[in-house]
């Protein structure tokens, strides 16, 4: 486990030594901006150690970031580094949310919303001491931000590692907890501007999730043109793109992107389930579902299929 701490004096590694075979403290704080090279160095060191037989064969590396971390530059580091990109595969982004104070963090810290949006799995911590009603409200809010994330609870800090690290092949509206939630797949204004009595705007960004499918197979080259153009123009506002895309082959393309950064798409050999429709979720800030749909509809001629909202009663 690679542990990163924002403060000058690292404490976590003293606590984590017991639990982990190799703990490397990344010096000088935030992985995202100031010490990205440290992450590169730490991951390269692990490869060296593995090659020399100094450690057991690497199965998985967990990078624990600070609570203020932006996951995007970390993904970028791994995808773009000439050595790391060939030796490491980013499997999951996991965000933990404090069930007692989570609402407060989401109100106050835009980083929190982004961390939830970029997560593949969200773990609710401290559910043992939180009010049940509060947990329900928080879960609904988190689902509103990111319907594609698996949601797990870790009462007393305990969680089944196998369940936590379970691989997910893309995202299906029926697979996640959210799929059974009638509110899950509609376009959800997750965060509204909240004006307090003293006129203080607590949070002004509007985060929306839009899940859609296509009415036929899409041309992969043309979809790449559309999405790369969208990410160029609006990448800052597209917090997440995730899904399975029917490109007219035996299996779908697994798409996973965080802002400007897109995982190398996997062309799967077969569909993971019976549902052979494309299904893509966009989590955006300041870009409405209607804008995405109208744009995709205009591109229908080159993409080869038109978009359909997965939720019929979604406000467009």
């Amino acid at each position: 486990m690679l542990v990163n701490e924002f403060g000058k004096v690292g404490l976590d590694h003293h606590l984590l030594v017991r639990a982990d075979e190799k703990t490397v403290l990344l010096e000088h704080g935030c992985v995202c901006c100031t010490t990205r090279e440290d992450l590169v160095g730490a991951l390269l060191d692990l490869l060296d150690e593995e090659g020399k037989g100094g450690i057991a064969s690497l199965d998985r590396v967990v990078v624990e970031t600070t609570g203020l971390a932006d996951p995007a530059p970390i993904l970028f580091t791994v995808f773009s580094h000439p050595v790391l990109q060939h030796h490491y595969h980013v499997d999951l982004v996991i965000s933990t949310v404090d069930a007692v104070n989570g609402e407060l963090h989401l109100d106050r810290n835009p980083e929190s919303t982004k961390q939830v949006a970029t997560a593949d799995a969200v773990v609710l911590t401290k559910t043992d001491i939180a009010e049940p009603g509060g947990i329900q409200a928080l879960r609904a809010r988190l689902r509103g931000i990111n319907p594609s994330a698996r949601m797990l609870e870790a009462p007393f800090g305990e969680i089944d590692p196998e369940e936590l690290l379970r691989p997910t092949a893309g995202w299906s509206p029926d697979e996640s907890h959210s799929g059974r939630d009638p509110d899950a797949n509609r376009s959800t204004p997750a965060t509204e501007a909240l004006m307090t009595e003293d006129g203080d705007v607590r949070h002004v960004s509007r985060t929306r999730s839009t899940s859609l499918t296509f009415d036929g197979p899409v041309d992969w080259a043309a979809f790449g043109t559309w999405l790369s153009m969208l990410l160029y123009a609006r990448g800052e506002d597209v917090l997440r793109v995730k899904g399975l895309l029917d490109v007219g082959e035996a299996g779908p393309v697994l798409l996973n992107g965080v802002q400007h950064i897109v995982h190398p798409p996997d062309h799967l050999g077969e569909w993971p389930d019976e549902d052979r429709r494309s299904r893509i979720i966009f989590i955006t800030r300041g870009v409405d579902s209607g804008e995405l749909l109208v744009s995709l509809e205009a591109f229908r001629g080159i993409i080869g299929a038109g978009p359909r909202l997965l939720e019929a009663n979604a406000p467009v």
Binding site: W226, S228, M229, Y232, A233, V287, E291, V294, F299, G301
Partner: peptide, 30 residues
């Protein structure tokens, strides 16, 4: 394509955006 869009914007001298209604109208017309 990653480096095409900024270069295209520079040559065109205006922002390129798939959400731009004028571009969409042109594509629908085509």
């Amino acid at each position: 394509l990653g480096s095409l869009w900024p270069a295209a914007q520079k040559l065109a001298g205006r922002p390129l955006d798939p959400l731009d209604p004028a571009l969409q109208a042109a594509l629908r017309g085509a």
